Amino acid sequence: MGDWQSAAKRAAAYYAVDHFVQSGMRLGLGTGSTVAFVLERLAQRLQTGDLRDIAGIPTSEATAQRAQALGIPLLSFDDVQSLDLCIDGADEVDPSLNLVKGLGGALVREKIVASASRSMVVVVDESKIVPKLGTRAPLPVEVLTFGWQLHEAWLRSLGVEPVLRRTAQGEPFVSDNGNYIYDCHFPQGIDDPMRVEAAINNRPGVVENGLFLGYATQVVIGMESGDVVVKRVAEEA
């Protein structure tokens, strides 16, 4: 990651917290390097008293641990049935604000939390903006470990190149849910995201995929120039 990207991620994260989070909110807390800056800013504003009565549901064990270390109160769905706002990152954002997420391995919990939120603010640096999904990042597909071997050939029949995600030691990567993940590469990008999502999620043994279609209400983009740009659903290209 270049120095500008880290600065851009921080700028986007700080802007999102400063402009969209209000005292009393129940938040969905995403996963990833940009969300780390979101947690940092939330903690700062809670400590100064600028924000009060904030609590969140984390989308991963890593986010939960970081939030607890920073003193951010956490909830579960035993406590609340809906959230005011979800703040999360993305691996790709297209002109309609559709997303590919899941390179951090938390796509299932991220989608559950996003679906339970009244709005979703996505924080990214400008390198994540793409003309078509699937052109920059693979599409993660989380599958049950039982019968995981059956999915590779089927995914290839869709015209994609599936790669089972592995750890640095060469072992299959295991999500917080105890599942495996295939990273699916689309040679020409994803032409029809809705069709792809329906086909993949209709497959027995597939838990979820990383297409987030129609979830984002705003995207906060940190630019290499140092500026922050906000795109909203009403501003679709």
Rank of each mutant, 00 (worst) to 15 (best):
E40P: 03
R41M: 10
L42D: 01
L42H: 02
L42F: 04
L42Q: 02
L42T: 01
A43S: 15
A43T: 02
Q44N: 10
Q44D: 15
Q44K: 07
R45V: 02
R45S: 08
Q47M: 12
T48D: 08
T48I: 01
G49E: 00
G49C: 03
G49K: 04
D50I: 11
L51E: 13
L51V: 10
L51A: 10
L51Y: 07
R52A: 14
R52P: 00
R52K: 15
I54R: 00
I54F: 01
A55I: 03
A55F: 07
A55S: 13
G56C: 00
G56A: 14
I57H: 02
I57T: 04
P58G: 00
P58F: 06
P58S: 02
T59F: 00
E61I: 15
E61K: 11
E61Y: 04
E61Q: 15
E61D: 13
A62D: 15
A62K: 05
A62R: 14
T63L: 01
T63E: 04
A64E: 14
Q65C: 05
Q65W: 04
R66T: 14
A67M: 08
A67L: 09
A69C: 04
L70M: 14
G71T: 09
I72T: 10
I72S: 14
I72C: 12
I72W: 05
I72H: 03
P73W: 00
P73E: 13
L75R: 11
S76R: 13
F77E: 08
F77S: 10
D78E: 15
D78R: 12
D79Y: 05
D79P: 02
D79I: 07
D79H: 14
V80W: 06
V80K: 01
V80Q: 06
V80L: 12
L83D: 09
L83M: 04
L83T: 09
L83W: 01
L83E: 11
D84V: 01
D84R: 00
D84W: 02
L85R: 04
L85P: 01
L85C: 04
C86G: 09
C86M: 15
C86E: 11
C86Q: 13
D88N: 01
D88H: 03
G89F: 04
G89A: 06
G89Q: 09
A90R: 02
A90C: 10
D91G: 10
D91W: 07
D91R: 06
D91F: 08
E92V: 07
V93E: 00
V93Q: 01
V93A: 06
D94Q: 10
P95I: 12
P95D: 11
P95G: 06
P95M: 05
S96Y: 10
S96F: 13
L97I: 06
L97D: 09
N98E: 10
L99T: 06
L99I: 08
L99Y: 07
V100S: 03
K101M: 07
K101T: 08
G102N: 05
L103P: 01
G104T: 03
G104I: 05
G105S: 09
G105F: 00
G105P: 11
A106N: 05
A106I: 10
L107C: 10
V108E: 05
V108W: 12
V108Q: 12
R109N: 13
R109E: 13
E110R: 11
K111Q: 15
K111H: 09
K111S: 12
K111W: 07
K111L: 09
I112S: 03
I112L: 15
V113P: 05
V113S: 08
A114V: 06
A114R: 03
A114P: 06
A114Q: 09
S115R: 03
S115H: 07
